[in-house]
Simulated assay, not measured.
Amino acid sequence: MSVELFWAFLAASLLISITPGAGAINTMSNGLRYGLRRTLPAILGLQLGLGIQILVVGVGLGTLLASSELAFALIKWAGVAYLIYLGVAKWRERAVALEAGGAPPAAEPALVRFGKSVLVNVTNPKATIFLIALLPQFLDPTLPRAQQFTVMGVTMISVDVLVMCGFAGLATLIARWLRSPRQQRLLNRLFGGLFVLVAGLLASYRT
């Protein structure tokens, strides 16, 4: 990959990461409740999910998903169901009253937050189709494909880590002003509704 092509891909990766989606909603939701440090497992989970998506596209399975209506439908509806589950769980999440300087709320185990976030990205066939359309535009046919996919995968994941940390940091700052149970309930319902909205958008997506 030439230097010029790499910078173009870097810009595309940044644009993709900052575009609101299920991953960003998941990160903001965790950041508001747990803070930046305890959101890191969720951010890393998203990156594993993204890495799996890139690997799927790189080995050609993404083309199969794009061409097989049954495979696409199975993964799509699994993703829709999972996002709705996250939305309902967030809507029903209990608020934790905090006074200034109070202790942070008890967090889910880091492994649970990590696993949930992996599924957010893995069960998104729209991302697979998007990567199928995007990545070949930056491939040089004269160079080894495996090396190029590795460079693109590392670039996308690195950019997404930084962007998700930014989202989580912003959410942590916002959370300092949202201490009452009522405010937290409103936020939980906002993010729960956003998860369900993304599920609806995914359900309406057609290849």
Score class of each variant (00 low, 15 high):
I174K: 07
G169E: 12
V159T: 01
M156T: 09
I157F: 08
I174N: 14
R185G: 03
T150Y: 05
Q147M: 09
V151E: 11
R145I: 11
G153E: 07
M152D: 01
A175V: 07
R179V: 04
R176M: 09
R176W: 01
R182G: 04
V151F: 06
T172G: 14
M152L: 14
G169F: 12
G166Y: 01
R176P: 08
V161H: 00
Q183T: 11
T150Q: 10
Q183K: 12
L170Y: 11
V159F: 06
C165N: 07
I157P: 05
V159A: 04
Q184N: 06
L186Q: 07
G166W: 00
T172Q: 15
M164V: 09
M156H: 03
Q148G: 02
V154A: 15
V163D: 00
M164D: 10
G169P: 06
T155A: 14
S158E: 04
L162D: 00
S158T: 15
R179A: 11
I157E: 04
V163F: 01
Q148E: 01
W177N: 13
R185V: 08
V151Q: 03
F149W: 09
T150W: 12
C165H: 05
G166K: 02
Q183G: 15
A171S: 09
Q183N: 10
D160H: 11
C165S: 07
S180W: 04
A171N: 04
V163Y: 02
S158K: 14
T150S: 12
M152H: 07
A168I: 02
C165V: 13
R182H: 07
L186W: 10
I174W: 15
R145G: 12
S158Y: 05
T150M: 12
R145Y: 11
G166D: 00
Q147W: 08
M152A: 12
Q147I: 06
T172Y: 08
A146P: 03
C165T: 05
L178D: 07
Q148S: 02
L186Y: 08
T172W: 09
V163Q: 01
L186C: 11
W177D: 11
V159M: 05
P144T: 00
A175R: 15
Q184I: 00
A171W: 02
I157S: 02
V159S: 03
C165Q: 06
L178N: 08
S180I: 02
R176L: 11
T150G: 14
A171G: 06
L162Y: 00
V154N: 07
R176T: 14
F167A: 12
W177F: 13
D160C: 09
R145Q: 12
G153W: 02
R179P: 04
M164C: 09
